[in-house]
């Protein structure tokens, strides 16, 4: 295109006025191109090839329950995840049973989980295993609170990457009172708690 323009400007019949306008236009184009290039270049200078994903920092989470209601998905992408390696396999599980439970059985009246997503199975006396059915879990965090208050804190809320649409601005992060929703490089995957403390 610039060739064409230059030719035009050399042509004797084109007025001086047009020349100036072409010159101005070329200048503006160069300016637009350079500013776009510099903004992009500057961003690139501090970019990373990795993608960012949202995760809950379990050390900050206060289990306010907003994860269940504020995710853009109707069944929140926040699920309870169980780090079995931290679990005490207790019979009386603070995450499974209501605080004042009388009978340690699986009756609906004893469950803490409103959707019964936490399953209990017998391993060996006196140990019980607890698993989360993610298709039922709505991320309310009640069990996490219970486990943290009475147990090892092996249950915790985390964002399931399979479900998370990875919004540019996580809707939960905006309302999280503890600023626990953070963006981490995708290669780091999950911010899960690790095993037993020594």
């Amino acid at each position: 295109m610039s060739n064409e323009k230059i030719e035009k400007s050399i042509l004797p019949e084109t007025g001086k006025h047009l020349n100036r306008r072409d010159f101005l236009k070329t200048g503006l184009r160069a300016a637009a191109f350079l500013s776009l290039a510099s903004i992009t270049g500057y961003s690139l200078s501090k970019s990373m090839s990795d993608d960012l994903v949202w995760q809950i920092d379990p050390t900050k989470c206060v289990q306010c329950g907003k994860c269940a209601t504020n995710c853009v998905l109707n069944m929140s992408a926040v699920k309870c995840m169980h780090v079995h390696k931290m679990c005490g396999y207790c019979d009386l599980c603070g995450g499974y049973f209501k605080p004042q439970v009388k009978n340690l059985d699986t009756g609906a009246e004893n469950h803490l989980c409103p959707t019964k997503a936490l399953k209990r199975s017998f391993v060996e006396a006196p140990y019980y295993k607890y698993d989360v059915d993610e298709s039922l879990c709505n991320g309310c965090g009640k069990c996490v609170e219970g486990c943290g208050a009475f147990g090892n804190g092996s249950l915790h809320l985390q964002i399931n990457h399979d479900l998370c649409t990875n919004c540019n601005q996580c809707a939960i992060s905006k309302v999280c009172p503890a600023d626990a929703i953070v963006q981490i490089p995708a290669s780091k995957g999950y911010m899960l708690k690790s095993g037993f403390n020594t």
């Binding site: 920092d57 379990p58 050390t59 900050k60 989470c61 206060v62 996490v144 609170e145 486990c147 943290g148 208050a149 090892n152 804190g153 981490i184 780091k188 911010m191 899960l192 708690k193 690790s194 403390n197």
Partner: peptide, 12 residues
């Protein structure tokens, strides 16, 4: 190290 997050719920 994000994978070594430990007991936290008592941070209150």
């Amino acid at each position: 190290t994000t994978d070594s997050l430990s007991q936290s719920t008592d941070s209150t």
